[in-house]
């Protein structure tokens, strides 16, 4: 018995050594380990979300029950109806989407313009001006908050989306910096070839730089969308009319009225409000997969 085991172990060991040096096996093993870790990670990361879903389907009493009820019995689907109709969530959604999408499109484009200038074009004093971009990046918005509020109040822009949209459409330092970092990695060969062919810098930007920067543009656009969709302090400061509320101010209403937060309703409403960004992200993922385009220079 012992001999047999030893022999088996021996041959097994040889087999394993052979496998280890096999490229295909290595790659397969790494994929398997990565997949396992991903599943583990998803379980940990998703647990609060699962708990959120579970809570959203409980009665108020069951939500506070201890030891916890894992699967709500009975499932109170009615919570969603109450959560979404006790406040005009349809209008909140429309407001949030108009605000976030407008800023996303205009800010990404204007940031890409400036980013190209800073990444590729040579001009005296460029580095000094870029220091201003960096400084803005480091500038806490609290610094500009109070003077901006006074300014917009004097312009009669309060209780509208103008103070939230207009300052954003000229580019954001965060996006400019990220896109510049990315564009610096694009080899000059393309541009110089286009310049010889007589292309203007604008058409180089539009026809060469933007398509090559798609993964970074996609990332910047999504982050911009998320930031403004989730923005809480800005709307809190500028929006007063309930019918102009974005989703975030609408969500907050679940916290305020009764003192004690109705977690089941809050979770139900939160779950519905996270759907639009999740859907946008899922469909924009192809931009990231296109990342291979950047290495197009290797061909």
């Amino acid at each position: 018995m012992a001999e047999l085991t030893e022999t088996q172990a021996y041959t097994g060991k040889r087999g394993v050594t052979g496998l280890w040096s096999n490229q295909k096996f290595q790659r397969g093993l790494i994929t398997a380990v990565a997949t396992f870790l991903c599943i583990l990670g998803v379980v940990v990361i998703m647990f609060p979300v699962a708990w959120m879903i579970s809570t959203s389907l409980k009665t108020e009493a069951a939500a506070l029950q201890f030891p916890p009820q894992w699967i709500p019995k009975p499932a109170v689907w009615h919570n969603y109806w109450v959560a979404l109709t006790s406040n005009p969530f349809g209008i909140y959604f429309k407001n949030s989407m108009l605000y976030a999408i407008t800023v996303m499109v205009l800010q990404t484009l204007s940031s890409a313009l400036a980013a190209y200038g800073f990444a590729k074009l040579r001009a005296p004093g460029k580095n000094l001006i870029f220091l201003f971009v960096l400084a803005t990046l480091m500038l806490p918005y609290e610094v500009t908050l109070i003077p901006q509020y006074v300014m917009f109040a004097k312009m009669g822009w309060l209780d509208s989306y103008k103070p939230l949209i207009i300052p954003q459409i000229f580019g954001a330092s965060y996006s400019i910096f990220l896109l510049r970092q990315f564009m610096r990695g694009i080899p000059r060969d393309y541009e110089e070839a286009a310049l010889i062919d007589g292309a203007s810098y604008f058409s180089i930007w539009w026809r060469i730089i933007l398509p090559l920067s798609m993964p970074a543009l996609g990332a910047v656009a999504i982050i911009t969308f998320m930031w403004h969709y989730n923005n809480f302090m800005g709307p809190l400061l500028y929006i007063n009319s309930r019918l102009l509320y974005p989703v975030q101010l609408g969500l907050q209403q679940f916290q305020a009225p009764h003192g004690g937060t109705e977690y089941n309703l809050l979770m139900a409403a939160s779950l519905v409000t996270i759907l639009p960004p999740v859907i946008v992200f899922y469909f924009a993922q192809r931009f990231f997969i296109q990342g291979i385009v950047i290495s197009g220079v290797k061909g």
Binding site: L113, A114, G117, K126, Q148, F170
Partner: peptide, 25 residues
């Protein structure tokens, strides 16, 4: 010519910066 284009490319940002960032700062 390149420097001129640089200024054109960053002009939207410069405007937004002066009005909504530098001024309030």
């Amino acid at each position: 010519r390149e420097a001129l284009w640089f200024w054109l490319f960053i002009s939207p940002w410069v405007f937004g910066y002066v009005v909504f960032t530098l001024g309030p700062t």
